[in-house]
Nucleic acid binder design. Structure first.
Lengths: 123, 123
DNA sequence: CTTGACCTTCACACTGATGTCAGGCTCCGA
DNA sequence: TCGGAGCCTGACATCAGTGTGAAGGTCAAG
């Protein structure tokens, strides 16, 4: 599909789709006329990117982990070419994500506790 | 304590401590000489703010929820003055935080799964 | 063949979080 | 009393993520 349809189906402005490509997060092909052509899977890819950006990750971090985020099942980057360094990097990313989760969960709990304490019988 | 000590104890540059004040996240008193004076609790406050910023929240969102994040025990903003509108706003914030957590957790799981699949016997 | 919708690149501008620097005040120790 | 360390405010710069617009190419429908 072309950029307009992808934008329309994901709700992401074309400006950003081009930006994500510039940031190496998307890799559409080009038709003979120079138009970008996206595969069907790009819709999910874009939603994935949006979710991660909204969650506070930078494009740099997303670029680093995106290749390893294929759905459960097929290993997209083959196991053979994963060096120990890569594995360590990935592990670092996982830990950074985890600490974000911990922080958010802790504060979500505090907010919930406050709300529960203030309004014990919500109805 | 003054801003220098707070900066030194939290690792946050004075520039940011002043910025957080400008953003209404910190409220130090002022001495006769115009110097900011922070209570001991500011150390924890600053760490809280940093954690939330690092987790992708904006100062605006932090400003909205910060009053309700006192430790478990005392209700800092008294229950009486919590209107249903405020409660609804808080609930919205909780949901936004939750969706971030969900997104991050989902991707953490994918990364972990990939790592586990690639290196079944890590030692 | 023209019109309009869609695409291209390029560029400038904005916001939020942050870095950095300048000019001036306060305070303490030599 | 002087010097330096620490504080003040204010301004400008940077970076990432976005918004917006100009100038022009492509294509299908009338």
């Amino acid at each position: 599909m072309r950029i307009g349809e992808l934008s329309h189906r994901t709700g992401v402005p074309t400006r950003l789709l081009r930006y994500y490509e510039e940031q190496d997060l998307l890799h559409p092909e080009r038709g003979d006329n120079g138009y970008r052509r996206y595969p069907e899977s790009a819709v999910a890819d874009v939603q994935q990117i949006r979710g991660l950006l909204d969650s506070g990750l930078t494009t740099e971090m997303i670029r680093a982990i995106l290749p390893y985020l294929a759905g459960p099942g097929e290993l997209h980057p083959p196991a053979e070419c994963v060096t120990p360094e890569t594995a360590a990097l990935l592990h670092g990313h996982i830990e950074r994500i985890q600490s974000r989760i911990d922080c958010l969960a802790r504060n979500r709990d505090r907010l919930s506790a406050y709300l529960a304490a203030v309004r014990p019988h919500p109805r």
